[in-house]
Every structure is written in C-alpha cells, then in structure tokens.
Design a protein around this nucleic acid. Sequence first.
DNA 1: TCAATTATTAAACAATGTTCAATATATAAA
DNA 2: TTTATATATTGAACATTGTTTAATAATTGA
Lengths: 205, 205
Amino acid sequence: MGTEDRKEREKEQMRQLIIKTAMQLFLEKGMDNVSIRAIAEKIEYSPGSIYSYFKDKGEIIHAIHTEGFEKLYAQQKTLDGVENPVDKLAQMGRLYMKFALENRDYYDLMFIAKGVAEKITEKQEWEVGNRSYDYLRETVKACIEQGYINDPNVDAVTFGIWGFVHGMAALIIRGRCAMMPEEFIEQTVEGSLHFMYTHLITNSK
Amino acid sequence: MGTEDRKEREKEQMRQLIIKTAMQLFLEKGMDNVSIRAIAEKIEYSPGSIYSYFKDKGEIIHAIHTEGFEKLYAQQKTLDGVENPVDKLAQMGRLYMKFALENRDYYDLMFIAKGVAEKITEKQEWEVGNRSYDYLRETVKACIEQGYINDPNVDAVTFGIWGFVHGMAALIIRGRCAMMPEEFIEQTVEGSLHFMYTHLITNSK
DNA sequence: TCAATTATTAAACAATGTTCAATATATAAA
DNA sequence: TTTATATATTGAACATTGTTTAATAATTGA
C-alpha cells in the first residue's frame, strides 16, 4: 500500500513547485511582488491552496532566504585553496561585496529585510548562515594565530569585519549613498576595502 | 485682510499636529503602526483629511526621518570641543553606535528602512543627512592631514568607517546576530570598535 | 443674506495575508 | 461497482493597508 508514500511525494513536489514559482517571481519582479496571489495565479491554483502546503508566507520566504545562503556559501568555498589567511580574508571581502551587489534582492532578504530573521530564533534554522559566518571566523582566527592581526578577540574582529563589508553593502542597497555620485560608489568601495585590509593587517610575522 | 495668513498658519499648525501625532505613534508602537488611519483616529479626523495636508504617507514619514537626523546631529555637535581628531573619531563611533541602539526605530528609518530614502534623490532633501556625514568626513580628513591615518583617500576611508559602524548597528537592529548570545553583543561591539580604532590609526606623527 | 471657496467626511477601491465552509476529488471498504 | 470516508481545492469572505473621490459641511467675501 504505497499510496501514502506517493501522497507524500506529491505533497513535496507541490511544495517545491510553490517555492520555485516564488523564487521566479522574486527574481523577476523583486521581493515586494511575491504575493501569495501572484504565486497562486502562476501555478494555476487558488490562493487558499498554498496554505495547505505552507503555514504562512514567511515559510515560503524562508525557503528563498535559505537558497540565498546556499549560493553565498558556494562562492565562499571557492576560496578553499587559498593558503595565506590574509589573502583569503581580502578575497572573501571582495567576494562578499560582489555577491551583495550582484544579488541585491537575495542579499536584502538574507541580511537586511524585516520580518525574515527576527522570528528565527528557534533552533538550527541558522545553520546555513552560521556556516558562512564560521568560514569567515576561521579565516580571521588563522590571521590572528599567524600574527597577521594583532588582536586576540576573534569574535570582535570577525564581527567588525563582517559589519564593515555588510555596512557598505547595506547602505548602497538601501539607497543611503546620496552623498556621492552613483558612478563613484564602486571605486570608493574598493578604496575602503583596500584601506581596511592594508591597515588592519600587521605584517609582523 | 490677514485671513489668508491665518489660514496658512492654521494649515501649518495642522501639519505639525499630524507630524507630532505620527511621531508619538512611531515612538509608542513602532514604525509599523504608524498607519494613516491610526493617526487620523488619534487627532479625531477622518483618514481622508490627512491627504489635504500631505501628499502621501511618505511625506509624513519623511518628517520623522528628518527629526531623527536632527537628533543625531545634535549629539555629534557634542564633540565640537574635542581637539585630537583621533579621539574625536573614536568618540564619534561610540556615540553613533549608542544613538543607533538607543533609538532603534529612528535609526532604522534613517538608514535601513525601505521606501524612505530611495525616492529622495531630488535636491536638498539630503541636507540633514549630509551635515552629519560631512562632520565625520572632516574628522577623517583631519586624521589624514595630521598623519594619524595613512591613506589619502578621504572619501574611501570615511565611507568605510561609516559602513563599519553602520554595519554592526544594522545587523543588530535587524536581528542578524544569532551566532552570538544576546548578552555578548555589547562587549563584542566594543571589542570591534577598539580593534578598529587601534589598528586603523597610524601613530606615525 | 447669499454665493463661492475651502475643509472634512464617509464610502469606495485596490491590494495585501489569511481563514473557512462548501465542493470536488481520490481513496478504502462493502 | 457502489458507497463511505478522507483529502484537496476552491471561492468567497475578513481584516488590514494606502489612497481617491463625490458629497457634505463650514467658512469666507461681497
């Protein structure tokens, strides 16, 4: 009597279809146009149906949110081969910034948007995010241990560096950079990254 | 025939009442509960009336937004007397952070919220914000000129330092710090600030 | 007092997330 | 195959947004 298995399989398929469609809308029209009704229309179901597969909109958003973290982590893993932790750190900063600016909707959802992360204080919902954070933290730790960064507080340095890159990205994405012309932003960011990495690192080894 | 003057005075009074009420709701119940209907109810007018005094909700939000910048700038001016630009920079960072964490709703509106700054690309709408930015920029400039910071790119350094502090504030306010327990955040931030200011500054003078 | 301007309102519109009773469908039992 | 039960799906409804607009009330100038 494998009909129960099939049922579950179909249910999972439907869940995937909804997520996939939500993701499409998300990329096509931006976060604000991922309405339950829009998703329903695209898969030719009624809006109410979606609630048989997801508790609320938040659950769908969370799936997109997770997808974003997967993408980011995949890019981070690109740096696995970089031996020197300082180089790794510098490249990671630029990679992170690139990801943020080239996937603004994803980045917004992952690190800026309201009502996405606030409630996720439960359990291992942060796994995907923590993985990326730990990747940064390990690199910082290596920098400290090898004498490139002259501060024993791994967590403070990690959070500071993350904040630094995130801060610039967030200001740009949320349009708070009116003090400089659009076309200067890129080079200013590069200047900031250069400034940070040349000054934070003590070549005392 | 001074009735026209009085009319205008009354109109301005009404505008102020609306703004004041919006501000109250904003501080009491947070940004998300500043609905046109809530404001209208509190001043005992109909929702439609508000549109005789403001083009749309954005205009009201913008007033609160501006108030926030006034508050921040007032705090910055506290540092006018600090002679050493490095001290000034360090104190400004802590002051900024304190402002962000003690006035989260204001800070959110000023630097994070969507749909507040995006459209304000017009003219001098950024005056209040630029004033604060210039205050930081001048301090950074002094640090560079006096040889405390070893990088000639004033704009890059300024933007980087701003991004650094903003980044941490934004991550905290928008609940993206699940990787550390709530009670560690404060000391981690202080550690980051300390790290930055001791490493960015070259005491080469 | 009367006409014209202005202020205010109530109702309506469109869009949002969400719920729920009714209906259709698919499954299991007779 | 027919019948009864469980499941899936729907469409309408609810409450909440911001906003518009025609109708009404109030105020003003002659």
